[in-house]
Design a protein around this nucleic acid. Structure first.
Length: 509
RNA sequence: GACUAAGUAGCUCAGUCGGUAGAGCACAUCCCUUUUAAGGAUGGGGUCCUGGGUUCGAAUCCCAGCUUAGUCACCA
């Protein structure tokens, strides 16, 4: 047995059937020729009334106001909405008034997709509208749409239930047009970055999503199994080690927009799959990469919003370069008063305790410093700020600092108190790299479940020689959240991960 | 994973002390009209998230579960 259809669903199915009986296919096959878009008409017609006198347009019926021999409706296409004026004797010039009286008035519903031929005019109320001469049913909607009404910019009965919005994004996109804008901007951000990299001559590449060793980051991977090879494979947590292999292979600059997968918690800023852009450029160092990063981000900000300053939540953030650069040890000194440059692990451990930071025995020196920074400093950096010179232990893929044995040449870019980008002078000393991997192994044995695995082929690649290289990774979801002032990652992903629905269908027997 | 809150008509939401399930929009029938969330009249529409329990009686109180959101923990 199935759950019964609602009254409105039954009526719509009957309407589709009646159309068929009238010889109208509710789902016709032929293409419908379109020669205009709604917003284009609304923009251009008021300036030149000779335009759009033979317009052919298609869209979804979003509202109807049926009167006697003449009615109004609003259709929505891929870019906007426009009003239709439908007069009985225009769409039914002959004796037979079925198309108006029956099809339009009775059998069409809000949500149906129709094709329109007619001419543009302005109503007495001053609204640019299409005077319909011909109406074609293009697709019958048999499930009622959540109705959103709007007057004077005020929304009535808005479709706001987050569960339904995310599960049925298609509905969200239909009835909440502003949702579309965020996703258009997301694509524009990616295109701006891609153009920027291509202009510099860097090569967009693709590297494996299924990896035998989940490397390049510290995170729990999703595990799968390859049947033919009978081996475990992991969905990538990062693509870093593969991109660096390509630098070894001789490319001067490579980048990839990488969908990464991490088997960790979900919240408003984390989704199990997320997008990261990583770029590696040979013969550069991390200072060069800071310049490059701020140039890129400034460009993105301007291309998205036409200016560098953006409101994020209740903060005003300016992406105009140059960005402030602060050593991690300076940041910690400033916000905690502790000078970590002279501390050993024991001293750091005690300092953490004094500051009320939760610590445990598995934490090494790097992790302790990371905790202090994360707890006491990170949230202070609202304006774009490069934090640089990270402790060696927490950066196993980063080149040792040119002046200090305890540090690495690494920076992260913080915006609005959150990490946005991460970059290094890449470690290209194969002996040091193997040593660092082995350090990670020790951390693992100590109980750190995020420590990295050793990738011997990557070490072998470095042994052949990798040029000095700087690499940078930036979270695309997070960048989109900043650039569009969206507080939740679910609003910058079309289909955020959710628990499966128990029942989704009421049609199957 | 922990805590808190929410889940009632297609949508947005009320629902008093535990006593026959409500409104607006949408839908149906009718009236009227170049309308602007059109208006008027009438009407249909409910697994009150699920399962237990308390009770003469549960949308309401209790317990468990499911889903979502927020906060925290982990992480980008």
């Amino acid at each position: 047995m199935s759950i019964e259809l609602s009254e409105q669903e039954i009526l719509r199915r009957q309407a589709a059937e009646q159309m068929r009986q009238l010889g109208i296919n509710p789902y016709p096959a032929p293409l419908f020729e379109i020669n205009a878009k709604t917003t284009e008409i609304l923009e251009k017609y008021p300036n030149d009334n000779s335009l759009f006198q033979q317009v052919s347009i298609a869209g979804r019926i979003m509202s109807r106001r049926i009167m006697g021999a003449a009615s109004f409706a609003v259709i929505q296409d891929g870019v906007g909405k426009i009003q239709l004026y439908i007069k009985r004797d225009d769409i039914c010039p002959e004796e037979d008034k079925t198309m108006y009286n029956t099809v339009f008035k009775k059998l069409l519903d809000i949500g149906d997709i129709v094709g329109i031929k007619g001419y543009v005019f302005v109503t007495q109320m001053g609204e640019t509208s299409i005077h319909v001469k011909e109406l074609t049913v293009l697709s019958k909607s048999i499930r009622p749409l959540p109705i959103v009404k709007e007057k004077d910019g005020v929304l009535y009965d808005a479709f706001t239930n987050p569960e339904q919005r995310y599960r049925q994004r298609y509905l969200d996109l239909i009835v909440n047009p502003e949702v579309r804008d965020v996703f258009i901007k997301r694509t524009k951000i990616i295109n701006t970055m891609r153009d920027f990299f291509n202009e510099k001559g860097y090569l967009e590449v693709e590297t494996p999503v299924l990896q035998p060793i989940p490397g390049g980051a510290a995170a729990r991977p999703f595990t799968t199994h390859h049947n033919a090879l009978d081996i475990p494979l992991y969905l990538r947590i990062a693509n870093e080690l593969y991109l660096k292999r390509l630098i070894v292979g001789g490319f001067d600059g490579v980048y990839e927009f990488s969908r990464n997968f991490r088997n960790e918690g979900m919240d408003r800023t984390h989704n199990p799959e997320f997008t990261c852009m990583e770029i590696y450029v040979a013969f550069k160092d991390y200072f060069w990469m800071m310049d490059f990063t701020e140039e890129m981000i400034e460009k993105v900000a301007i291309s998205i919003n036409g200016k560098t300053n953006i409101t994020i939540g209740d903060k005003e953030v300016d992406f105009k370069r140059p960005y402030k650069r602060v050593r991690m040890s300076e940041a910690i000194l400033e916000y905690t008063g502790y000078d970590i440059t002279k501390m050993d692990e024991k001293a750091l451990f005690d300092a953490c305790k004094e500051m009320g930071i939760e610590v445990d025995a598995t934490m090494g020196k790097g992790k302790l410093i990371d905790e202090i920074f994360g707890e006491k400093c990170e949230h202070h950096y609202i304006q774009p700020t490069f934090i640089y010179d990270y402790p060696k232990e927490m950066s196993p893929l980063t080149k040792q600092h040119r002046q200090s044995e305890d540090l690495t040449e690494r920076f992260e870019l913080f915006v609005n108190g959150k990490e946005l980008a991460n970059a290094y002078s890449e470690l290209n000393d194969p002996i040091d790299q193997l040593d660092r991997f082995q350090q990670q192994l020790k951390l693992q044995e100590r109980g750190d479940d995020e420590a990295m695995f050793i990738d011997y082929d990557f070490v072998r690649a470095l042994e052949y020689g990798m040029p000095p290289t700087s690499g940078m990774g930036i979270g695309i979801d997070r960048l989109t959240m900043f650039m569009t002032n969206t507080p939740s990652i679910q609003d910058v992903l079309f289909f955020p991960q959710m628990k499966p629905e128990k029942t989704i269908d009421n049609n199957n027997q």
